[in-house]
Amino acid sequence: MNAPQAPKADAQIDVFAHAFDHILVDRNGPIFEVTINRPGSYNALFGPAHRELETVFDAYENDPSLWVAIITGAGDKTFCSGNDLKATNEGGDILPGPNGFGALCNRFDRAKPIIAAVNGIAMGGGLEIALACDLNVAAPHAKFALPEVRVGLFAAGGGVMRLAGQIGRKAAMELILTRLHFDVARALELGVINSIAAEGQTAMDAARDLATEITLASPQAVSASLRILNRLEEEGGLVAAFPANLPLFHKLLETNDAKEGVAAFVEKRAPRWTNS
């Protein structure tokens, strides 16, 4: 049986009245708040969650009363741990929709800003979501990593390209090839995040403060600025490079090493690589 589809934004649903299974949405005036609500799975994403995120971010772009969005994770431990490797290991529905991982990583035509409130671990696809956002604020205990190579995969949601583009090739290659975890101080130094939440503040508090500052500006001027920066990203080759990601990722998924790496992660053991 096919997996159920999330309702589409063009169906004119009220996202604030709709009961989603894997996310929560709220609004604070013109500020749109999206929470990945899978704390029991470390806010990891799989097909149904991706489709819900497609719906709400489509709605955000199409609603003129919403000016700024914030994305965060449920709880205070994990922003998003990336792809749901248990679902991957079981052959489940893991594929994102047309706008990529988290419905953001391939969404190049955005006209409104999105802030990531990194409230804990941002690993793999979770870090890719943050890299795809326009601004990032993080809790002091947040951690970051692109660990895909240790499970036989790679950061195909744009992590390889965006991290290199945002912090430089040498620094990015070290983090990508070693899957080194780094803290908020290093993330701030590298430019992965804009700021660290102050003492007594949560990442969401800090993101709301930043979003409120943005709403003091003309929403059309903000949109124009974002569109120009998006054009710069397109001309820099990021958009042109993206089509190669998915075929390469699918090819990698069929290798013995990818299957072994995911299985080893789920079984909590060291992988046995065969380079096949």
Rank of each mutant, 00 (worst) to 15 (best):
K268I: 01
R272I: 03
F16P: 05
P48V: 02
D257Q: 03
F249A: 15
I115T: 07
F20G: 03
A138D: 04
I23P: 10
D205L: 03
E254C: 04
V266E: 06
A156W: 13
A217L: 14
A264W: 05
K143E: 12
A185S: 10
F46P: 00
L53F: 12
A142S: 15
L85R: 13
A122T: 11
N62S: 04
S276D: 13
A116G: 13
E233D: 07
F79Q: 09
L190N: 13
R51H: 11
I228K: 02
I228W: 01
A139F: 03
A185I: 06
D10V: 01
H181F: 05
A138V: 11
A270N: 06
E235I: 07
G159D: 06
A139R: 03
E189T: 14
W67M: 04
F32V: 11
A139K: 06
A145R: 08
A187G: 14
S223Y: 01
T78K: 00
I121W: 00
G92Q: 11
A111F: 00
E54P: 10
A203H: 04
L127A: 14
A217R: 11
R227I: 06
A217G: 04
F265N: 11
K112W: 02
G29T: 10
I13K: 01
A187L: 08
E267M: 08
G47I: 05
G29C: 06
D93M: 09
E199L: 02
P39G: 02
K259A: 09
N89S: 14
E267N: 13
I121E: 05
I23L: 15
C80R: 08
R107L: 08
E254V: 00
L216Y: 06
G200W: 12
